[in-house]
Design a protein around this nucleic acid. Structure first.
Lengths: 154, 154
DNA sequence: TCTTGACCTTCCCATCGTTGGAAGCCCCAT
DNA sequence: ATGGGGCTTCCAACGATGGGAAGGTCAAGA
């Protein structure tokens, strides 16, 4: 099986297969006399394993650990579970961050007319203007900067 | 104000300030006779705007648009709102992806004993083994691994 | 047999935002 | 005048992926 066939069969691009080999995630493939890599069904299975783990968001470094556990017949399922839950914790952390962003922006957008007028709570928030249109508490102020800017709410 | 002071005042690192200048997000800073950049309060305000937008997850490219809108007195709030909602849509998409990963892994982990035994639905899922422990439908199969395969030396 | 086109190889570059370091100059206080 | 900290530029790396160029290889068809 050439690298292209392996890519099609595993869902991992040929580019990535070479990359995984280079970084040591997978073993170096056998080469034909002309230098072509070739792969066995077992290799495809491994690549699918990697593909699936990537789809679940595991970083390559953790995939290496998962592959090691996969092959380790004497592994404790607790090891795998710990690895997975560790990753899940990271996912929830990131989810919480993104949700906080989305909620903040959604709340601001709900306050925004979304019409032809320039007044916009979203921009005001980014510029740290409070509701009265005065500068933020740090007193940095809204000085004309690269040209005229909006001030207070009309 | 030197770049270090500006960094401290804005929450944007000196490195990033230089980067933003290089990429054209902010205008080139004035230089002292010895080549030091210096910044005004208005510059700090702009940097904070950028910082806040970054904290809300906007990519730099969109921040450039936001800055332009900020300065555009004749902007329509609809433009800002559209930009923000576009970003929010991207956030929700990513959130949904991460949640799907987290849910899948959590469900698998709940099936996992997490004890000293090797049986592990998480690994089995990655290896595409069905509940009976038979190979996946593609017939790739879980052959007893021939010797120490994959997981090279990073 | 020769040509063609699809495939393979390596190598370099780009992404995106950020951080790190090295080498060298500058400024201020002691 | 000396030292330490800040500034400058340049170069590299991260993680995972894609793009592309230049050149070798294979198989099928004329």
């Amino acid at each position: 099986m050439t690298i292209g066939e392996a890519a099609r069969a595993s869902g991992v691009s040929a580019k990535m297969i070479r990359y995984y080999e280079e970084t040591g995630l997978i073993r170096k493939a056998e080469r034909s006399s002309s230098g072509y890599r070739h792969y066995t069904e077992a290799d495809i299975h491994t690549l699918r394993f990697i593909r699936r783990a990537r789809d679940l968001g595991f970083p390559v470094e953790q995939i290496a650990e998962l592959l090691a556990l996969w092959q380790d017949r004497s592994r404790a399922s607790a090891q795998v579970k710990a690895l997975a839950m560790d990753h899940v914790a990271g996912l929830w952390k990131k989810i919480a961050e993104l949700q906080a962003m989305a909620r903040t922006l959604t709340a601001l957008a709900e306050q925004c007319g979304g019409d032809g007028r320039p007044e916009c709570p979203i921009i005001d928030d980014l510029a740290a203007i409070d509701e009265d249109g005065r500068p933020d508490p740090d007193g940095i102020g809204i000085l004309p900067h690269h040209g005229p800017r909006l001030f207070g709410t009309p």
